[in-house]
Design a protein around this nucleic acid. Structure first.
Lengths: 186, 186
DNA sequence: GGTTCTTGTGCAACTAGTTGCATAATCCGT
DNA sequence: ACGGATTATGCAACTAGTTGCACAAGAACC
């Protein structure tokens, strides 16, 4: 039940319209809490009804018109409450690990292509994170806020690093597969 | 849509009743695909209706009676098909990362206790994985099946290792928190 | 020999997330 | 000005997962 809170964070960082939020969920926020535009619009409606956000006054509040939202004090309070509240870690579900375990029983036939594809996807994501790190977190900026944001980004970097290494190992385990192409970026 | 396949894997590894499956989902399989007993019973019903599994003939098929299931050829075929099919990686959602990002905006007050609690939980899980590794994968066993299973377990170990390190770093970032107690197991 | 505890099975309702489509406004070439 | 592409907003139906409870059978209590 965290989508509303993800939206509150995004809106606190910058008031936005539904579409702008959607774009930002495709980038930064979405890296660890993804959402589609349909979910976002639905949630914006609820958050407005609850008095946590409000639409900035616009010319005509009609369909197909941009509507920008900002967070109200009640919304900021709710976010603070949620952040501090104790929450159990959600159980993971990872289909690729499951498929490897299935492969131990029914064989590895047909797995190689998808392992390779996932490896490429994770390498791409890792490169994107490293790009962001270079751009937004040059050494020397040590404000508390920047350090926290950097910490979150580093989680992304380290997780993607893990997956690229693990998938490369998995490919090496396949009986008749070529070893994965080395990642020869600098 | 992978719960039915997780169940097929478990049943191929060993035919079981609903409750036995539930227990195994609390341990091994559940480490990367969790499920409650309600989900499992529902899915067993569907899998039986589809002809993927069948109940081993029992004395009285009454309520409150153990019923053991085994996988039929159609079920094994379906699992093979699913394992080889291309699947997009699911977008991640991690509430703790989201909370840290929220903390960058609304402050870190109240976070410390839960960070510490999660750190303990991950350390516990890591210890459990390492125990399993020591018990089930002594050096020298290099059958293809064992290597694949070990690979999956190592993913769990490395992910938990990452989280314990990351959470310790996060605690170190909190303004007025003590550093996390060192993990002084051997 | 009734009571309560534990084990095993299951339904129903709810919540969160996904997929597919609908609609309005605006921009842009002709 | 007209007609199609793009931008922006949104509803509805579906799927997957969670929560809460119900009920039957046997064990164990005493």
């Amino acid at each position: 039940m965290s989508l509303p809170h993800a939206i509150l964070i995004a809106l606190l960082e910058r008031p936005s319209s539904g579409l702008e939020l959607t774009r930002r969920f495709d980038r930064s926020i979405g890296y660890f809490w993804s959402a589609t535009h349909q979910q976002i619009y639905r949630e914006l409606g609820k958050l407005e009804a609850e008095g946590h956000i409000r639409a900035l006054p616009a010319q005509q509040p009609a369909r197909g018109q941009k509507k920008r939202y900002e967070v109200l004090p009640a919304g900021r309070a709710e976010l603070g409450r949620w952040t501090a509240a104790s929450q159990d870690p959600k159980p993971h579900r990872d289909a690729m690990l499951l498929r490897l375990r299935a492969a131990a029983v029914v064989g590895t036939a047909g797995l190689e292509a998808d392992l390779r594809r996932h490896l490429d996807l994770h390498r791409l994501q890792l490169a994107e994170y490293q790009e962001i790190e270079k751009r937004d977190f040059p050494p020397g900026n040590d404000s508390a806020q920047a350090r926290l944001q950097h910490l979150v980004l580093r989680a992304g970097i380290e997780l993607e690093t893990f997956w690229t290494q693990w998938l490369a190992e998995a490919l090496a385990e396949l009986p008749d597969a070529q070893p994965p192409v080395a990642d020869d970026r600098p």
